[in-house]
Design a protein around this nucleic acid. Structure first.
Lengths: 167, 167
DNA sequence: ATGTAAATGTTATATTATAACATTGCAAAC
DNA sequence: GTTTGCAATGTTATAATATAACATTTACAT
């Protein structure tokens, strides 16, 4: 039986993938990447990243603040926002604009042009390369003389699981 | 010569289109649509819509509050947010999630699947049908078993004019 | 060991958004 | 034509999100 805390972390995705491995990989990639880049993945930054990866649901800054307080007594809003800024800069997380929330990014070191499928029911976010969408976007940008760099695109709806449960 | 106030309204787009006509049309479409739907485009709601249409730049809620105060002395945050909620529900405006701001929507009565090109320098927003992008998205959603309704997609970059000025 | 820049601590406050309840105004039913 | 009900607005208060500004500590290059 799960403890309450563990149970809270159970996500739709965690039922169909090895989430521990998922987190371990993400964290070790982050460490490697930061080391390569000569930037510091400090304890606080690591802990915030770990907390974000504890599920595939988008997490809010003040939720992270509550979660990190047991680990970092002095934590205050700037503690979290600074760590988030760093992680965003390094491409280790995404900011979900429409939720004011954050998720881990799988794409480190790869392309960052991703489609984010955001479930408006469970707040899980799925990253998809969506190559056709991205190439159509590139073409459209060019037609519009709009200049942009790789970026994530957000789409909102119901994920497969939530949609099944509904019916 | 432009007065200062008028000059502030001058946008990149306004240099190449008849903005007055643009606004008049948007407002009359809004009136027609609301009347057809049996919903009330009240004075406050109309004024907010008009203020939003005063440029093609995304406008923030508290900016609108300042702008409407001369017209509505009693205006307070809920005054604006309620009008915005109404206009969003009726599809008369878009909310730009990444800016916490709003722009008029041209698509009333037509499809609402649009690509929004958001200039991060001047905050102008261009709506484009971007049919190829939308059909690629539909396909991707279907592959992912993701269920979604028509929605706007946001992209960030530099508009043609800002990009020219830069170089 | 020491100077420097980056990171973190700390206080305060800005910005964005909504809850909750009171009042007004308008229109349908009587 | 009044009553009644509901939508809209007024009003107060506060919640939620985010950053500014300055002090202190830490890491580490010299």
């Amino acid at each position: 039986m799960y403890t309450k805390a563990e149970n809270n972390q159970i996500s739709v995705n965690s039922l169909i993938h090895d989430h521990k491995k998922c987190v371990t990989e993400a964290l070790s990639i982050a460490e490697r990447l930061c080391s390569l880049r000569g930037v510091q993945l400090t304890t606080i930054r690591y802990q915030v990243l770990e907390l974000i990866w504890s599920s595939h649901k988008a997490v809010k800054a003040y939720e992270l603040l509550d979660l990190i307080k047991p680990l970092q007594n002095a934590a205050k809003p700037p503690t979290i926002y600074r760590a988030l800024d760093f992680l965003l800069e390094q491409g280790l997380i995404h900011r979900i604009e429409s939720l004011n929330a954050f998720i881990g990014c799988n794409c480190s070191g790869h392309q960052h042009e991703l489609l984010l499928l955001i479930c408006k029911q469970c707040y899980e976010v799925e990253e998809r390369p969506a190559l056709k969408v991205m190439s159509a976007l590139t073409e459209e940008f060019s037609d519009a003389n709009f200049v942009t760099h790789s970026q994530a695109i957000e789409a909102h709806g119901l994920c497969a699981k939530c949609n099944e449960l509904k019916s």
